[in-house]
Amino acid sequence: MTIEAKAGDRVNATDEPPLASRMLARYLHTQRETIMDGQIAVHDDPDAVGDMVIAARRARCALSAYRPAVRHEPEVRRLIEELRWFGINVSAAHELRAQAARLHEAVDLLRPRYVRGPVRARMTNYFHTRTRPAWRAARDMFGSPRFPALIEDLMCEERLLNAGLVPGIDDSDNAVVLAALLERVRRRMRAVESARDEDGTDASMHDLRKALRRTRYYLESVHEMNPARSAQAADGLAAVQDLLGQNQDAAVAKQHLIQLTREAENAGESTFTYGLLLQREIDRTTICAAGLPAVYWRSLRAVRAMADVHADAPLD
């Protein structure tokens, strides 16, 4: 059953829907408009997909924060999965382009004597052969029936929220939602601290980044609840997200460089330059991991304070 069809079955609406539903409706509306604007711009500017990916993540994270709605409302779960599908398909080519620019810039910064073999040509071919099909898949996705269906589902969810017809949104205490999100962040930070190898650290830091992102976008969606504190808390989360984003960019670059090294070896080319670039990315992830604890505790201070204000007892 579609979201639109289900709307007629939902009852117990009030004349004045509680604020949480309206805030979430406005937030989804903003993200939907960003996606629709990006669909037009992307034909002339491939980099326009970046804003669309972030908008899809914002909408998905804000919806996912309300566990009762996700648990009991199949339409909400389906919408979340469609937003995830959209983000994955649109982001692939964009992320490959970003990595190509990153590694080409890294080569350009090396002294000529450190660039051995056809490094630039191999990198260009490596990313071109991967970006082209990814970009074709993204364009095909815009022309598929699933994309306009996603937009329509977002519009319908906005209407349901404005009418107060989505159970689990207004039933949730914002303090409880925020406490649950913070506990998720804490668990993932503990996983980072207990990681014992390079790959484990990279993976756990990426998981932490996703948990922080969900918390930040939830705070954005309910900023009217306490504008000053919400903005301060979201800014704090953005700071630690930036560090984790740098780590993730370096972690992904490492995987590309390992593959480039294999291809160069198979072609009988020097792998010296790839090894040099790989070590630099390893050093970046090491620096990010070492700097994480201080940035984490400083960034989370405002979020914990906000949670304490909306709860009877401190969270820690």
Rank of each mutant, 00 (worst) to 15 (best):
Thr2Cys: 11
Ala7Pro: 05
Asp15Gly: 13
Ala20Cys: 00
Arg26Ser: 11
Arg32Gln: 14
Gln39Cys: 09
Gln39Phe: 06
Ile40Leu: 10
Asp45Pro: 01
Ala48Phe: 04
Ala48Asp: 06
Ala48Cys: 01
Gly50Ser: 13
Gly50Tyr: 09
Asp51Leu: 11
Met52Asp: 03
Ile54Thr: 12
Arg60Glu: 10
Leu63Phe: 06
Leu63Arg: 04
Ala69Trp: 05
Arg71Ser: 11
Glu73Trp: 01
Pro74His: 12
Ile80Tyr: 02
Glu81Val: 03
Leu83Pro: 00
Ile88Tyr: 06
Asn89Pro: 00
Ala93Phe: 07
Glu95Gln: 14
Gln99Asn: 13
Ala101Phe: 06
Arg102Thr: 12
Arg102Leu: 14
His104Cys: 12
Glu105Asn: 13
Leu109Thr: 10
Val115Phe: 02
Gly117Met: 03
Arg122Ile: 01
His128Ile: 05
Pro145Tyr: 10
Pro145Phe: 10
Arg146Ala: 14
Glu158Arg: 14
Leu160Cys: 11
Ala163Arg: 12
Gly168Val: 07
Asp173Pro: 02
Leu178Met: 10
Leu178Thr: 04
Ala179Phe: 01
Ala180Asp: 02
Leu181His: 00
Glu183Ala: 08
Val192Gly: 06
Ala195Thr: 09
Thr201Arg: 14
Lys210Pro: 00
Arg216Pro: 01
Tyr217Pro: 02
Tyr218Glu: 01
Leu219Thr: 08
Glu224Thr: 06
Ser230Tyr: 02
Ala233Pro: 07
Leu243Gly: 08
Gln248Thr: 15
Asp249Ile: 12
Asp249Arg: 14
Val252His: 11
Gln255Val: 15
Gln255Gly: 12
His256Phe: 15
Arg262Asn: 14
Arg262Glu: 15
Glu269Pro: 00
Thr273Asp: 07
Gln279Pro: 00
Ala289Tyr: 05
Pro293His: 07
Arg298Tyr: 05
Ser299Met: 08
Val303Cys: 10
Asp308Phe: 03
Ala311Val: 02
Pro314Asp: 08
Asp316Ile: 08
Asp316Met: 04
